[in-house]
């Protein structure tokens, strides 16, 4: 998988942007890249990149978070560090945005910093989430995201899952949905995701794109002690 440069992970609320971002960062690091990950989710204080901070930092990934004292606030604070990270980007710099159009509004404020760079914006799609079951639903979100962020979506990512209830069929359904989106928009499928436990059961010959294995890093508290 060859995802490099500045990569914005966007998508509808709850599509799995953070889980995708965190796993993409770890994957890039394993491939030998210098990786930074920026928590840009100014919308929702729960289940954010910051919860995976320790895992990421231990692997040598540069994690950019809001200041400690504002960590648990639901305030739209954009750390001044973010613009600096974009100007001096790593081999792979991941910007984990918030959900829907409101979640990417902050990107418009970073437009000046990003102007000199090639920026990819990937839209994450999970067909099991409300409002993105269909091509039309995903395209509506795409349009809203593009208007708010003043950027264009450059790639599709399927993150089809029902958490523990996911089957290979669900992964195929997600793949088919992003393929249909690619056909309709001319925008390529960048990759799809699948939980590591499902990888062995998947018919990889069915896919024309890479598969990012996902190891769940954001779990509710009763799951954490088992990790």
């Amino acid at each position: 998988m060859e995802v490099k440069g500045i990569v914005i992970i966007a998508g509808n609320y709850g599509s799995g942007k953070t889980e995708t971002s965190v796993n993409l960062a770890l994957h890039g690091k394993k491939a030998g890249l210098a990786v930074s990950i920026v928590d840009l989710d100014l919308v929702n204080p729960y289940f954010r990149t910051r919860e995976a901070r320790d895992v990421l930092t231990r692997q040598g990934i540069n994690v950019v978070l809001p200041d400690e004292k504002y960590m648990h606030a639901d305030l739209p604070i954009l750390s001044p560090k973010v613009a600096g990270i974009i100007k001096n980007s790593s081999d792979l710099t991941i910007l984990d945005a918030g959900g829907d159009d409101v979640g990417v509004t902050v990107l418009a404020a970073l437009a000046d910093s990003m102007a000199e760079h090639t920026v990819q914006m990937l839209q994450v799609v999970n067909p099991y989430r409300p409002f993105t079951e269909t091509v039309e639903g995903c395209l509506k979100i795409k349009e809203e995201i593009e208007i708010s962020s003043k950027l264009k979506v450059t790639g599709w990512v399927s993150n089809a899952n029902l958490i523990d209830d996911t089957t290979p069929q669900d992964i195929y359904r997600g793949y088919d949905l992003v393929q249909a989106l690619a056909l309709k928009t001319g925008i390529p499928v960048e990759f799809i995701t699948a939980s590591t436990e499902l990888m062995d059961g998947l018919d990889l010959s069915r896919f024309d794109c890479p598969v990012l294995p996902i190891e769940r890093k954001l779990a509710p508290p009763w799951r954490r002690s088992r990790q």
Binding site: G14, N126, Y128, R129, P130, N161, L162, I163, D165
Partner: peptide, 14 residues
Amino acid sequence: AKVLMKGNEAIGEA
């Protein structure tokens, strides 16, 4: 069929 929802969204739909 099953869908993946946040508790808040699921309460609204319910």
